[in-house]
Design a protein around this nucleic acid. Structure first.
Length: 461
DNA sequence: CGCCCTATCT
DNA sequence: CAGATAGGGC
């Protein structure tokens, strides 16, 4: 039943193409000579990249690869990763002078089918074809299984498509298996076990079709696994999406903590909420940093001038710690590598209603045309007011009827309370501009470019 | 009907 | 928990 017909054996090539990669030219010569004795056709490379190119083209059929672990530019391990990633189903034998268990384990873990210590003995070449044959059998079994659903004897060892497992592990190594045929009642269901390997194939399928149009049927097709049904994939997809969602939520939360924590100080404000946590500019991450005080009051900095002016007019009765100004202009005078985000601050009523401990800051998804980085003052829709959000550390905290209260002192002597009382005037800001110093991998250029592209078509000069 | 999706079951 | 199943909706 499960045996491979002799017909298949005849399909096994009598001459095998072996790819050998090693920077030791003498060794290459030795391998070539030895292999030729056993009817292997050998192709040698002294560095990995040419071999990679050859494999990528997939023009030449390679049956077996021998590669030295320590290679310049791309070492043996990286090579294995490449083979795995490109789903090149060719057994790879690693060679190295390093006889440590760790090195061998790493190689096998990355998908090598064998690990050989140098110096090599001639013997290994004689039986090298077996590695290829194992792969050959796997591929045939997989094909056969397409027509033989439910053939008990074949469920095992089936469907290994992407990897060439070490034969040491033996039989228990199929990419996935349905529940063991331990004579269970007929109507017991065969559960698919989503092993790491199977999940990897699943992920790879999704990667190829793109997450947004990854639906069960397409994934199933892309996975090209016999015995797997759309139902299986659908179920797994549901779990996977759930996982992604949680993951995204978690990251967002972490990111927000980052924004809101300055140095090793405790978070002053907490961001929360479901939908209003969308980053204004997805894809960029920043660390929050308060601008240096001297910059804040630097008369050369336009924003700081606004800040001053507004503070004088509003600070006395402002429930908010920072002043508002109707039009925001972020100038090039501002420190380099900085970026800005718009955030909404819920009004006091909302704070009260939701029993918030602090006025939570929600980043809001405003069109980025609201933000302009330019030399000149930029226009901003009149229905939005913004202020700079650079609250200093509280010096005193206590309770009032809203909840926790902290008093902040500015170095110009002003002070105010947080969270705010109800705004005194209706025109009070519902938004703030937060100042961020970009993390090192983001430069001003990146930010400007991003903003520009987002502004495209929406920007009113 | 086929397929996707979500909720619910086991 | 992980995977299967039911059932609504398009």
């Amino acid at each position: 039943m499960a045996e491979i017909s002799s017909l298949h054996f005849s399909e096994f090539p009598s001459i095998l193409n072996v790819l050998v990669i090693d920077s030791d030219l003498k060794l290459l010569e030795f391998i070539k000579k030895t292999c030729n004795q056993y009817s292997y056709k050998v192709m040698t490379f002294s560095e990995s990249l040419s071999a990679v190119n050859l494999l990528r083209e997939r023009k030449t059929h390679i049956h077996l690869i021998l590669i030295e672990v320590h290679m310049p530019i791309m070492d043996g391990y990286e090579f294995l990763q490449f083979v795995k990633k490109e789903r090149i189903n060719v057994p790879v034998i690693m060679m190295s002078e390093d006889d440590s268990k760790a090195s061998a384990m790493k190689a096998i873990e990355l998908g090598a089918c064998d690990y050989r210590n140098k110096p090599l003995c001639e013997d290994m070449f004689k039986n090298m074809w077996i590695r290829v044959f194992i792969q050959f059998l796997r591929e045939h079994r997989t094909q056969n299984n397409i027509e033989s659903l439910g053939d008990d004897n074949k469920t095992e060892g089936t469907s290994v498509k992407s990897e060439f497992d070490s034969s040491i592990v033996g039989r228990r190594n199929s990419t996935f298996r349905e529940s063991d045929d331990v004579d269970e009642s007929k109507n017991s269901v065969n559960r698919v076990v989503w092993s790491q390997e199977l999940h990897t194939i699943f992920l790879d399928a999704i990667r190829r079709i793109g997450l947004e149009n990854a639906v069960p049927k397409k994934i199933l097709e892309a996975m090209n696994m016999p015995d797997l049904t759309r139902g299986h994939v659908a179920s797994h997809l549901q779990k996977y999406r759930k996982f992604l969602k949680q993951e995204q939520q978690r990251k967002l939360h972490e990111e927000n903590e980052m924004y809101l924590v300055s140095g090793n100080k405790k978070p002053r404000l907490y961001a929360s909420g479901e939908n209003n946590l969308q980053p204004t500019h997805p894809g960029l991450t920043c660390n929050i940093m308060e601008p240096p005080r001297e910059k804040l009051y630097d008369p050369n900095v336009q924003v700081a001038e606004h800040y001053h002016a507004e503070q004088q007019t509003l600070a006395h009765d402002s429930p908010y710690p920072l002043p508002a100004f109707p039009n925001i202009s972020i100038t090039n005078n501002f420190p380099e590598s900085s970026r800005y985000e718009l955030c909404s601050v819920p009004d006091a009523a909302t704070i009260q209603m939701n029993n918030m401990q602090h006025p939570q800051i929600h980043r809001i998804d405003l069109p980025s045309s609201f933000i302009t980085i330019s030399e000149n003052s930029a226009s901003c829709p009149q229905n939005y007011n913004f202020c700079m959000n650079m609250p200093p550390q509280p010096v005193v905290s206590g309770e009032n009827n809203i909840g926790q209260v902290a008093r902040y002192e500015y170095n110009n002597g002003a002070s105010m309370h947080y969270p705010p009382q109800l705004p005194q005037n209706a025109g009070f800001p519902n938004g703030v501009v937060r100042y961020f110093a970009a993390s090192t991998d983001i430069n001003d250029q990146t930010i400007k470019k991003e903003l520009n592209s987002m502004n495209n078509g929406h920007h009113n000069p």
